[in-house]
Amino acid sequence: MIKYCFLFATILMSTCCYSQEFVKIDAAVKEFYYDYTFQQDSTDHTSEKYQEMVLQVGENKSKFTAVNKLYTDSLLFTVKDMDPNAGFLKIWPQLQALRIHKFCTYNIYKNYPQKKNVRFVGDLGSKKTLMVDEEININWKIETQKDTTISGYSCQMATCNFAGRDYIAWYTMEIPVSDGPYKFHGLPGLIVRISDMKNQHIFQMYKVKNCDTSKDMLFVAENNIQETTAPKFAKAMKAHIADMYRKYGGSASPIQYKSPEQESKVLRNIRSRNNYIERY
């Protein structure tokens, strides 16, 4: 039953996706891939989840997103001119395998639409997309005495506080890009690894790719996008998960479970998503 619900939701999502517009904002010259390991339940260290993320760096702009989301957007881009149903059916087999955790269904564009701006576009379900535009100045504390080697790059340490957590970042001057995963930027080199002090959210780079032929960096413009602030998005994420919990559980739920154990497992999994990266 859950499978059918997922299918239904995906079909709904696809119709929404078809109302998307793709805008080329830059050409990606480098791609940096990160492993994002996070603890979805702050009270349970075994609730660790994992998502592959990618940072596309262009001449002036950058985009950070889940690899699966980038791939989904690329697939949708290939069938954007087709009949929605035919197009969807064509890419459905590939879409099935592309799972994205709720905490990672976002795109982050730096220096877009204007300089210094960080634009965050996050999906909360298939019908709700929120956008945050902000100018972020991270107050980095450079630790010049501490260095290490990560993924073959010699790195130096810096620390900061961002969105309710203290972070340790390792950046390399061998890659002269003042950028990094998520919203992090502003160091004299690429951030290779960043983790909060409790090791609940860790981004670590595992692959560097030169884009031989410039790749389109796409901004996915939604029709029904709403503007908000970062704290409000974090709050909306909480509300969305609470809403999911209500939808999936109880007698009023349209979902039929095979057993009470299966229901409680699903609900337990939803309830455990309480540790979004930003907290205010």
Binding site: K30, S151, M205, Y206, V208, N210
Partner: peptide, 9 residues
């Protein structure tokens, strides 16, 4: 355009 050493961990 600088070519970076491609690393795959």
């Amino acid at each position: 355009i600088k070519m970076l050493k491609e690393v795959k961990v």
